[in-house]
């Protein structure tokens, strides 16, 4: 009798752990617990000013991570996003700068500059997608070499110099959190609807689950993969608009060290590195958790190296959980 009760209790506990691990709100729950645990002894952590600071830094990272989510769902990865951010940053700045910009003083400088940034981002994404689908090259190699090439191009174009004196209207896009919030919220909602409500979204998951079966079922696999990389490039360019506006200057090394945060936050949210699984909402939770860790450890005056170690460990743990979940629940 006692043994049976113990067994039932054990089963219930195991089921609860399994339910928690499978819950799509696990990372949000962890964020809340983390916040509650750290707020009492982290100076300035639980203040409106700090909340605004977290939000301002979360928005561009979330934007580029949304693009990464779309690519990861197809079973690919986009390592070139940091170079897209740098290249689009200097392209837009070179067009808009009041110093020697091509459009200096023009009333169309800001809209044309932003359009140019989006165009460059989409074009790099298109090149990545075409190289992956046409030449059947591994996404890892294509986007890694693209990162090297376009990072180098950004430095070469600018001779490693930053471009400043940008129009105030442009700087406001990154500098004013409320404006950035509206842009990011609208784009994230659109991405969410496209993933969850459109045929294209279903194709995307299908390609990530099994590209061969999707092809046989009539899914335009190449087109879907190319579109995912174009979206990733476009959203990286949007992130570049926000980052460049925040720094009030275009930089050829902008976001150079951000790749771990982008991929890490996406995986942390629960998007699978193996493809076929991921949601915009999860990525938001992942970005939030990573930013809370970053911000709190910084406020606790931990050394840079300690912060890197903690973040690396958390992301590694998330990737491990992803692998375990796939093994236990999906038998992959």
């Amino acid at each position: 009798m006692t043994a049976a009760v113990t067994t039932n209790h054990g089963l219930r506990t195991t089921n609860s752990v399994v339910c928690l691990l499978r819950s799509e709100y696990l990372v949000l729950l962890l964020s809340t617990i983390y916040f509650l645990a750290f707020a009492p002894f982290t100076p300035g952590f639980a203040t409106p000013d700090n909340f605004a600071n977290i939000l301002a830094t979360l928005l561009p990272l979330f934007m580029v991570a949304v693009g990464q989510t779309v690519v990861l769902i197809t079973g690919g990865i986009d390592l070139s996003v940091t170079s897209i951010i740098a290249l689009t940053s200097v392209t837009g700045a070179a067009a808009m700068s009041n110093d020697h910009g091509w459009l200096a003083g023009s009333p169309f400088a800001v809209p044309v500059g932003i359009l140019l940034m989006l165009l460059v981002g989409a074009l790099v994404g298109l090149l990545n997608g075409v190289a992956i689908t046409r030449f059947r090259m591994p996404p890892f190699i294509v986007t890694l070499t693209a990162m090297m090439f376009f990072s180098g191009l950004a430095v070469w174009l600018t001779k490693s110099k930053n471009i400043g004196n940008l129009p105030a209207a442009f700087n406001a896009l990154g500098g004013k959190t409320s404006l950035a919030f509206l842009v990011v919220a609208a784009l994230a909602a659109a991405a969410h609807l496209m993933l969850s409500r459109s045929l294209w979204g279903r194709w995307l998951y299908a390609v990530g689950h099994n590209p061969r079966a999707s092809l046989i079922s009539g899914v335009p696999v190449s087109g879907v993969v190319v579109s995912a990389y174009v979206i990733s490039g476009l959203l990286a360019a949007v992130a570049a608009v926000l980052y460049t506006g925040q720094a009030e200057s275009g930089s050829p090394v902008l976001a150079q060290r951000l790749l771990l945060d982008i991929v890490g936050a996406t995986v942390l949210g629960g998007t699978s590195l193996f493809g076929g699984k991921g949601k915009i909402l999860w990525t938001l939770f992942g970005v939030l958790f990573l930013k809370l860790i970053d911000n709190s450890l910084n406020l606790l005056d931990l050394s840079y190296f300690s912060i890197m170690m903690v973040k690396g460990a958390v992301i590694l743990f998330a990737a491990l959980m992803d692998a375990l979940k796939n093994k236990v629940f999906l038998g992959k």
């Binding site: 100076p43 300035g44 203040t47 000013d49 700090n50 600071n53 301002a56 830094t57 561009p60 980052y243 925040q246 720094a247 200057s249 930089s251 090394v253 902008l254 976001a255 150079q256 060290r257 951000l258 911000n295 910084n298 406020l299 840079y304 890197m308």
Partner: peptide, 18 residues
């Protein structure tokens, strides 16, 4: 770590800590 935007965030953290 060489990231201008991260530096903006970190200095804002200093300001938060007054």
């Amino acid at each position: 770590d060489g990231d201008a935007n991260r530096q903006i965030e970190q200095v804002k953290n200093f300001i938060t800590r007054k």
